[in-house]
Amino acid sequence: MPIISSPHEFNVEDLYIDLRRVNNTSLYLKCEGFNFAGSIKLKAAAEMVDAAELDGLIRPGSVLVESSSGNLGIALAIIAADRGYRFVCVTDPRCNSTTQRLMRSLGAEVRVISTQDANLGYLHSRIQYVRELCASSDRYVWLNQYANPNNWRAHYELTAPAIARNFPDLDVLFVGAGTTGTLMGCARYFKERHKPVTIVAVDAVGSVTFGGIPERRVVPGLGTSTRPELVDESCIDDVVHVSETDTIRTCHSLAARGFVFGGSTGTVVSGATRWLGEKYPGEDPVAVAISPDLGERYLTSIYDESWLREHFGQTDLLTDFHWSAHP
């Protein structure tokens, strides 16, 4: 039985859902939300803090600070609570209230930046606030998930090897693109080993990460309004962009089968399903998609009828997904 003394020591690494029964797609979904942070971000948080400690960047009296739309903020709040550090999370209005309350319950300070940047997002404004905060005092330590190589290194060392171990004949890997830490770590792992694996990045419509036209986005998680420094497109074979309405429809269709996931997972599954239908019609490649998070934190947003009506002005996103069991 597992016995741990720190929350980051527990993570379910080898749980996959076979989506053929769920949406008739030959796709295995790697579930990364079963840990105390509820998301894949716990790996990157632990790796970045470990490296900062090793490099002597964190000293007595230091205050960790990071810009996050939610999941990394929770992960860092957990690490900070475990190690006795103060932590300031700089976020924006898209970060749902449940996530903010969870971070505060862990002792973190949450600061919400409501100034939009030129690309109709908040990332540039959040980063600018973090830079000004760090300039005001050397006690602030910015981990900078958008440029920190330890972000992708966590997935190079943990996530990708776990997938390779379970799927030695892997054909396609789908990874959502936020900071691109998970994407870059997995892509580098397979490319450096000359594995014949097609790496497909899944991004949100309105994100500028891969040169897209900036648009308003309200679902936190994947996508950026400022291109992350970690991006290396030479490691990626293809990119799929998913609209937020498709993200939400996919989340609800999964929930109708008993699987409640977060918006990032809905985006990845939607993009992977469409890509496989176009590239492998009638075929069954060995394909894996990474699910970054679970859905409980989104009950007041993407699973809430009033929120959907407020942000999308439509209720057909709440379609009642009925299905019939296999005979």
Rank of each mutant, 00 (worst) to 15 (best):
I3H: 15
I17C: 07
L19P: 02
L19I: 02
L19M: 09
N23W: 05
S26H: 13
L27I: 09
Y28K: 14
L29N: 07
A37L: 08
M48F: 11
A51G: 00
L54W: 03
L57W: 01
I58F: 03
L64R: 06
V65A: 15
E66F: 05
S68E: 02
A80K: 08
D82E: 06
R86Q: 15
F87L: 12
T91D: 02
P93F: 01
P93G: 02
P93A: 02
R111K: 06
R111S: 12
I113E: 03
L123E: 02
H124N: 09
R126I: 01
R131G: 01
C134P: 11
D138M: 14
Y140R: 14
L143Y: 02
Q145N: 09
N148L: 12
N148P: 01
A154F: 10
E157P: 00
E157G: 02
P161H: 15
R165L: 00
N166R: 14
P168A: 09
L173M: 05
F174K: 08
F174G: 02
G176D: 09
G176H: 13
A177K: 11
M184L: 07
G185T: 09
G185A: 15
T209Y: 01
E215V: 06
R216E: 07
R216S: 13
V218N: 10
S225D: 05
D232F: 11
I236D: 06
T247Y: 00
R249G: 09
H252D: 01
H252V: 03
R257N: 06
R257Q: 11
F259Q: 12
F261D: 12
S264K: 12
S264P: 13
T265Y: 11
V268D: 15
V269Y: 06
W275N: 07
G282N: 07
P285K: 04
E296Q: 14
R297M: 03
S301R: 05
I302N: 00
S306C: 10
R309P: 00
G313M: 06
G313A: 12
D320L: 08
H322Y: 05
W323E: 06
S324P: 04
A325S: 11
A325Q: 09
H326A: 13
